[in-house]
Nucleic acid binder design. Structure first.
Length: 355
DNA sequence: ATAGGTCAAGCGAGG
DNA sequence: CCTCGCTTGACCTAT
């Protein structure tokens, strides 16, 4: 298996000033401080700084043997409100993105992206669909500027995101929107199972989308628990595996419940104080902490991951979605030193050879 | 310098 | 009707 993480590197983002300061690909601005003047120069500055730091991220990743990374959507902030070529720094931005892309190719890194839950191609609100299309095209253009050929290798991963009580009808509408995307964007688009019983399971994605237009499916372990739809984990993983083209590694998402993590931490904490769980009610402060933990949604991600990822002997890519980001990957390697297999090491050598 | 509140986009669950 | 949670910290204002 190959492990990656999403969007933010805690180590670099929080780097103290005396060690060189913050490195981040997520600089942005608040609407109120920008929109009244529509200062594209300011936006371009931020985008250029983000793109420049992306290369620093990739170097850090490479030093830590992490070759799978999700690029955050905000690398070009507000990108759906203008054309990339409108930015005064367009040339410099292109160069910085291409440098990052070149580095990724030379070192065998896979870069992906995951536009947010506001990209809803099946929405009944026409304006939502229009804005979704523009934004998806921007994501695709950024990968173009990095020099990537359109492929699911560099996937643009979205959810269907709303079923409106009618899975089939919404799927038809969604596909109409999908068909309006550019060839390049469609060649990158991948769909992921939702984290709600009322939305789309892996099986539904397969039947209503993959069968019809053939895009691959990202299997998300955590989301699958909320809508198994009659498939156990292995069956769903397999069904998703079938949707990936033979020359592109399957990509999956892995996360664990924040609730469980915090409950374990809490129990450990009170045990250290010599208390038992049923005594907690007698201490108002402890009871309040416990109450807040119980309120955490089951969909929320933990800081770290603790279980060994169940790959069933298969070899594929896994984006770890954990709040501690790259630290969660390093921690996972620490507790399961043999989890990343020989298969992956062989692939690493292939990458090195072709580079 | 830092703490705390706030922030673009859609949807559905839960209180 | 409000808050949370999701791809996310970063921005902004007040101290």
């Amino acid at each position: 298996m190959r492990l990656g993480y999403a969007c933010t590197n805690m180590t670099l983002t929080n780097r103290p000033k005396k060690l060189g300061g913050r490195i981040t690909t997520s600089r942005t601005l608040r609407q109120a401080s920008w929109q009244p003047t529509w200062d594209l120069h300011r936006v371009g500055e931020l985008a250029l700084a983000n793109a420049t730091d992306l290369l620093e991220y990739l170097k850090w990743n490479d030093e830590h043997r992490i070759t799978l990374f999700r690029v955050g959507s905000e690398i070009v902030p507000w990108h759906d409100h203008f054309e990339l070529t409108d930015l005064p720094q367009y040339e410099e931005l292109s160069e910085a993105l291409m440098k990052a892309g070149d580095y990724a190719r030379e070192h065998g890194h896979r870069l992906t992206t995951h536009p947010g839950p506001f990209h809803v191609l099946g929405s009944p609100t026409q304006d939502v669909v229009e804005r979704s299309i523009v934004s998806l095209e921007r994501h695709s253009e950024v990968f173009d500027l990095m020099g990537f050929e359109p492929s699911h290798e560099n996937k643009i991963n979205i959810h269907i995101g709303g079923a409106y009580g009618n899975h089939e009808g919404t799927a038809v509408r969604w596909i109409e929107g999908y068909n309006r995307l550019s060839d390049a964007c469609r060649a990158r688009l991948v769909i992921e199972n939702d984290d709600k019983n009322s939305m789309y399971s892996v099986r539904m994605l397969y039947d209503l989308f993959h069968r019809v237009v053939g895009m691959p499916i990202t299997f998300d372990y955590h989301h699958h628990m909320f809508h198994p739809d009659g498939l156990d984990e292995y069956e769903a993983l397999q069904m998703a595996a079938d949707t990936w083209p033979s020359d592109v590694r399957q990509c999956t998402h892995y996360s664990e419940c924040r609730t469980h993590e915090k409950q374990r931490d809490f129990e450990e904490m009170i045990q250290k104080q010599g208390l038992s769980l049923n005594e907690v009610q007698e201490w108002p402060e402890l009871a309040k902490i416990k109450h807040n933990i119980d309120k955490i949604r089951k969909q929320a991600h933990s800081d770290y991951i603790y279980d060994e990822i169940r790959t069933y002997g298969m070899d594929f890519d896994i984006v770890v979605e954990a709040k501690a980001k790259e630290l969660a990957v390093l921690h996972y390697r620490h507790i399961y030193p043999k989890s990343e297999t020989k298969v992956y090491n062989e692939r690493q050598r292939e990458y090195t050879k072709t580079a």
